[in-house]
Nucleic acid binder design. Structure first.
Lengths: 236, 236
DNA sequence: GAGTGGTCTAGACCACCCT
DNA sequence: GGGTGGTCTAGACCACTCC
């Protein structure tokens, strides 16, 4: 019954590779549980601890989700694609859930590229998701503390570019910084992903035609939920 | 001597958080070793295994690098920034090391968005790096198998857009897909990073004015080495 | 109550580096 | 030879879910 383990530098790595193959081959199906740690332990003839180690690595790369008391489930892979070719991240059909509004300084070091204001800003944090699906992204928008109440309300209710559209405010320029990061504790809780899970981030600075209104922010999503496309036509 | 551990859901998480704080506070300095597992074990009053668990998590998020036989070192954080505003990833001053040239089919599922050819292509794989620095990126370029020898040579020696420039071939259109991923075994070895390490990827499709020459490829880099910027001026 | 995954510990062995 | 991190195992306890 003991399957052939791939030659590899370590046992847990071989186990991980074999389980991953089964997932990719369809031997284990999305949204269904894989055999329990105890079962796999006897099947592979290795310690339960080694199985757990392999499963933990599979969680880290987004292949499975473990729920204590229930089992370990194969994760369904479905990525949302945002096109940035016109500078706008189109999310008109998305839902928004406001998480918090607080006075806060912009602290992320990657943000320094945009020369953000040193003083405290008004930070609007929200989740972006589609009905019936796991949360897509977490957005932190930083506004000048003296903006109108009406503007804050719009940013609390809709994604950035759509909020601007509904307010009738024109965009002058958008700067993006796209990078990958690892989920901090709070973000990991929100998305129900392990601490340190890879995140795709888009930092933005939006300048508008409305005097004094410049918007900074970070939109981040688990790496297996979102990607960006971009098309550039050569001039002439 | 036992320091106060942050209230948290688990011991190894508290330890990880405390060590991360020390790194960010400058108590542990870049490129220098932190105390050994045994030392930390007695300092925190927890099992060495728990320390190892915390250190492994810190490796996974790119905070430290462990070298068996030497110690665990704080990783220096320096990210290279590529501007994509004109569609070109400028890498003129970078060095290139050819890794392999082989006939291969394009297999990455994310690539399907570009409708790549189903038949086998010529795959040129190379490292991109700056002198005296750890490798920056790993590029896989897929060419039609019937391209000229001279063209293959240029792609083996230089980054894609620069190779085209030197060949005097004009670009008609570039499509990008930017996402995050986790390092497969082979890639992890090349970069000397742990298996499953977060990677920032840029998939591309370049169409040219030269008849029949369309280039597909994937450029990937460890998440803590590279990020992309993009600036969009609003028309009118 | 039985089964699940998550955590923590103890102890052993290995490969590697440095002196 | 002594120190380092990496691996594997055994065994225990917990919180949770489902029947």
């Amino acid at each position: 019954m003991t399957p052939q383990l791939r030659a590899s530098r370590s046992l847990h790595e071989s186990v991980r590779q074999e389980l991953l193959n089964r997932i990719q081959n369809g031997a284990y199906l999305p949204n269904l549980p894989i055999p329990s740690t105890a079962t796999l332990s006897s099947e592979f003839g290795v310690s339960p601890i080694t199985i757990k180690r392999a499963l933990r690595d599979l969680q880290a790369i987004g292949a499975v989700t473990a729920i204590a008391g229930k089992g370990t489930f194969v994760k369904e892979q479905r990525r949302f694609l945002i096109d940035l070719s016109d500078g706008i991240a189109h999310l008109e059909t998305a839902n928004v859930r406001l998480m918090s509004i607080a006075n806060e300084k912009i602290s992320d070091p990657a943000m320094e590229m945009f020369n953000p204001p040193g003083e405290a800003t008004l930070c609007v944090r929200k989740m972006i998701f589609f009905a019936g699906e796991p949360p897509l992204a977490y957005d932190s928008t930083y506004l000048s503390p003296d903006v109108d109440e009406a503007i804050i309300d719009k940013f609390a209710a809709r994604p950035v570019t759509e909020a601007l559209g509904r307010l009738g405010i024109r965009i002058r320029n958008i700067s993006y910084l796209i990078d990958a990061s690892t989920a901090a504790r709070k973000v990991a809780e929100i998305f129900a992903i392990p601490n340190g899970y890879p995140m795709l981030r888009r930092l933005y600075k939006v300048t508008t035609t409305k005097k004094g209104l410049t918007i900074f922010g970070i939109l981040q999503a688990p790496f297996d939920r979102l990607s960006y496309s971009l098309n550039i036509q050569s001039e002439n």
